[in-house]
Design a protein around this nucleic acid. Sequence first.
DNA 1: TTCCAGGCGTATC
DNA 2: GATACGCATGGA
Length: 267
Amino acid sequence: MDYTVSGRDILLHQPDLDLDETLDCGQAFRWVKTAEDTYEGYRLDSFLRISAEDKADGVFRLHDTTERQLLDEWYDYLDLGTDYGELKRRFSEDETLAKACAYAGGIRILRQDKWEALSSFIISQNNNIPRIKGIIGRLVEHYGGYPSSQRLSGETAESLGFLRSGFRAKYLVDAVEKVNGGQTELERVARLPLAEAQRALMTIKGVGPKVAMCTLLFGMHKTDAFPVDVWMKRALERWYPNGLPECVSGYEGTAQQYLFHYIRNCG
DNA sequence: TTCCAGGCGTATC
DNA sequence: GATACGCATGGA
């Protein structure tokens, strides 16, 4: 990791990062673009304002951030320990992925909180991104921050009506009960092999194969988790009718994110 | 107005 | 195991 302290800020040099492509690409739902090249958002309750200072050189300003905060929180969240340049070179053995990586080379997989990812992707089902953001925005506003499963204990589908989340409210309630009750302990799930972890999450009502995979990829950083939504179905039919190429092995989920972005914007 | 959205539960075969 | 259908809500 290459960075310098600049007054109260950190200047981060990271060529393989683009704020739009990483913070506003449908993997996280509560980053807000507050100005051109500037986003504000949270990792749990930690706030960050980040700006692209020099896009050509890949320089980013982490406002009001100490070296300690960078090392303790944002290094992990922004997945700065992973060499995305190397991953993109691997993926680019495949013709379509080469185009997808060239189109949006600043995509990274954020390491989000397990519960936030699970609950966010329960809300995401059969929904569009602007409305997902709206529901999560109301959730955060109501509780003064993203509510833990403990904070949500006792809520019912009716009491969550203010979210206007439709039929998904009852699924959130079941997730709260199973996580708090220990039936689906997220720390334990994170240590299971992919297929077992997916099965464990799917015991929650409203969590099917896709929501489980998103939770595993974005909340537990299992890079082999491969969520298939309506967009990925189209991508698979068009480009990979016989399955994914060998070059993505172990990083199917990371490759998925490049393909997701590519087919949504260039399909 | 109708269609669709980072799907899933349920019924039916 | 596969396939069809309903589901809350709101933007396009």
